[in-house]
Design a protein around this nucleic acid. Structure first.
Lengths: 191, 191
DNA sequence: GGGGAAGTTCACCGATCAGTATACCTGCGA
DNA sequence: TCGCAGGTATACTGATCGGTGAACTTCCCC
């Protein structure tokens, strides 16, 4: 049913997925053909289709894998914080780490820009990713004794997505966002 | 020198530009071929190339025209505000109007996602558009007697871009962003 | 030693891509 | 009346697109 859970992948399948992840992110999904992915992973196009069936499925796998990695990084960062209040800010610290190696913005926003068809699996994955982060913010805020976690979570998500969207600009928006997030968290969790 | 100022356009040229604007925004730039644009504007492909020379140039015209319209709407909204402090919030009200008819996110962010080549004219136009808004926020903040207009402007830009980026989500992020923006403006322009 | 899964090789499909060539038509202003 | 700009019609290029068919090898496990 779910097109993204038919693993485990074969060795060739893993190389294909790795090449697809880099190429799709760096050059855009519609800008990268299956022939290029096959070539970059040292594999025949036939093997690619034996493993993934279609380009759309490969795109779904690319986004799902990226989602998995991002959530893992965030969760690790959250778990490393000493106090609940520090934990609310953790996703912004994770974003700092993430942005060092991912400078082409948010892969999910980019995917939605390229694939207008709402029935494409990319839409479901991208929406789920954002809502997961929103929910995490809310949970963390509640754990930090914030009396109104919902609006705070939405504000933090806005800052988070705004940071990613302004990445191409010659401004250090991440620092600005983190500072403002800290202030918002502090004033929303008065105790 | 500038590929976007060789107007005025002929009647056919205007129809082409109008069709390109709608199709590029709704279906993505790489997802729309020149044949489709020619067909939608009731024009021959030859005429399209006589008027615009290349698809890349047509893309640049599309973005430049969109930029022009957005700035015009924002400026009109700003001018209609009674007090300088209200004026700082005006771009968010303009965004509310704009979003009624443009539901596929920010055309400039989308264009950057689809066109990874930094030398493509789209990058210059998109960057200029964001920096223009940042500068406008700063100018408006200064006019509202904000002692530190630069950080406030960056915060407002973050909220603005975050709103656009979260547009596909089933949340009313615009209201949240506007409320927070109002609070930030109020507390940054104490007098 | 037999069988099946993984992968290769290579040729092929129809469609679409951006862009061009050539010849023709039409209306308007000098 | 001439010329020219704007536009049409149609056909074409070479490249690339996503995807398939069929036969072959290689290796591991029963």
């Amino acid at each position: 049913m779910d097109a993204t859970e038919t693993r485990p992948l074969t060795p060739a399948g893993r190389r294909i997925a790795a090449a697809a992840e880099e190429l799709f992110y760096e050059r855009g999904i519609t800008g990268v053909g299956v022939d290029l992915i096959a070539e970059h992973s040292g594999v025949t196009k036939r093997t690619l289709y034996n493993q993934f069936g279609s380009k759309d499925h490969l795109v779904a796998v690319y986004l799902a894998e990226r989602d998995r990695r991002w959530r893992s990084l965030v969760q690790t960062t959250v778990d490393a914080r000493a106090t609940p209040r520090d934990a609310v800010l953790a996703p912004f610290e994770a974003l700092a780490t993430w942005s060092e190696t991912h400078t082409r913005g948010c892969a999910f926003i980019n995917a939605l820009a390229e694939l207008p068809d709402p029935s494409h699996p990319a839409h479901r994955i991208a929406t789920a990713q954002k809502l997961w982060l929103l929910d995490l913010f809310e949970t963390l805020a509640a754990a930090a004794n914030c009396p109104a976690p919902t609006p705070l979570a939405r504000q933090l998500l806005l800052l988070h997505e705004g940071t990613l969207a302004t990445q191409p600009l010659p401004l250090d928006t991440l620092t600005e966002a983190t500072n403002l997030a800290r202030t918002l968290i502090a004033s929303a969790t008065t105790q």
